[in-house]
Design a protein around this nucleic acid. Structure first.
Lengths: 250, 250
DNA sequence: GACTGTCCTTGTCCTCTGTCAAAAGGGGGG
DNA sequence: CCCCCCTTTTGACAGAGGACAAGGACAGTC
């Protein structure tokens, strides 16, 4: 049975560092895509007063599985993982979040999974009580949150098909294609070359595999000329059709 | 590679049969728990005018994966499955829904998974356009839908841990415990004896296993005195502690 | 530039679960 | 009451992926 402990993950939770820059949302990179994007100016100012900008370092855990749900946040910059684990330390990454995504569990008692920064990240953080109250009185915000949650649910269910029914080769191929789309910027097409924000172990934790199987499959695909791996973190897709083919049936 | 086709599932989609009983929501069994539960009387009457009661038979598919999302519904009675499948016919059940649950994909273009009745069922059906419009103008409904969607997302992610990291024994044990809770009525404790709404094949499709593995594991647990299987569909939990133990670490 | 710790790759073996096949059990219809 | 069909169980075997171990590559430090 697989078992591992990620040192970074057992480090103490981030002591949120208030960002020096107290500027308002006007310059916010992700405003258009985040849930606050459609708020009126005065509403946004009110929401902004409730939150604060914080930075977290790669490896820091922002929320712990099972803890009381006391904060929520928008991701401004960086990549984070959502993870759940069994009593004996097996881990499953249940989501990867990118800039403009929302994290935390509003309207609930406890946080169902841990949230850990994969890269250095910047968040726009709210206490849950303040956020919940604001969301209840601003239907437009609630609606954006609903749409985002529905999308997350669709993605989670699509991933359940992968976890339950795909083999290692299909999992890796699906994962690489997904990454090439998710890492692309606003409206841009899929990337043919990108830096994975995940280590091999983390890729394994996303796909329900072991690190060895991930490594072997990626090496095999490299040998087959489907992808190139110029260095540990960089992936280049050489034959996207072939990769898509691998993703559906190995 | 596993592969199977469920005849029932390839049957033509339900031709929704308008329910004779045109009574209003007052007598609705699930109103309190459904998303319409907190609407004011006049709002509920308005919503009711948009929907219609339909019955579907076990095996009928209400929505097809990938189709345009044209309807949504509340489940009044019965059990249904949400399923996704690969191009070559492998299936994964991504959710099981019970009375008072909501089905369909509001505010979206296409249905991400099929919805099929496991038992005969009664639904309160809305066209998506009408429902979306109503939800947008009634924040209370949107909020209930948001809470439900957040709960569904938590459940889906918990299931991802099961699919990715648990072995067959743990999967079966977790599944049986989950069923014993979900099948219990409003506020009631977990059931020690219940009728599974799923065939062995469907249990396999929920857990990402084969029917043979499901059968073997259940027989093993029966032999170990943890459960009893008086007939094909009935499960009795004899030693809940032991079962909970199996669910965490085999 | 050598060192050191971490992450990744590769090799070998083994186990769990899938696959294929056949028998057994149950429920409904004649 | 018997028969037939479908679901489930059981058996034998194989293979994908996990476990364990060792070697290699890379980045940061001295």
């Amino acid at each position: 049975m697989m078992m591992h402990f990620d040192l970074a993950q057992t480090a103490p939770a981030a002591a949120p560092v208030p960002c020096q820059d107290a500027s308002f949302c006007q310059q916010c990179d992700v405003r258009a895509r985040a849930i606050c994007g459609t708020l009126e100016d005065d509403e946004r100012v009110a929401l902004n007063r409730l939150g604060r900008r914080v930075t977290v370092q790669a490896g820091q855990t922002v929320m712990w599985e099972g803890d009381d749900a006391t904060i929520v946040a928008n991701v401004i910059e960086g990549t984070l993982k959502l993870s759940a684990s069994t009593g004996d330390g097996r881990e499953q990454i249940v989501g990867v979040v990118y800039p403009s995504d929302f994290i935390g569990r509003p309207f609930g008692r406890s946080t169902p999974h841990s949230v850990t920064a994969l890269t250095d990240a910047r968040l726009c953080l709210f206490t849950r009580g303040a956020f919940d109250g604001f969301a209840r009185t601003h239907p437009e915000l609630g609606h954006r949150l609903l749409q985002r949650t529905l999308d997350d649910l669709d993605r989670a269910r699509a991933w359940m098909l992968l976890l339950g029914r795909k083999n290692a080769r299909e999992k890796i191929a699906t994962f690489l294609l997904d990454m090439s789309h998710r890492l692309a910027g606003e409206g841009a097409g899929p990337l043919d070359r990108f830096a994975l924000p995940l280590s091999r172990q983390q890729v394994a934790d996303v796909l329900g595999l072991t690190i060895e199987t991930v490594s072997r499959q990626m090496t095999d695909m490299k040998r087959a000329g489907i992808i190139a791996l110029p260095n540990r973190r960089t992936v280049e897709i050489l034959d996207r059709d072939q990769l898509a083919c691998c993703a559906e049936a190995a």
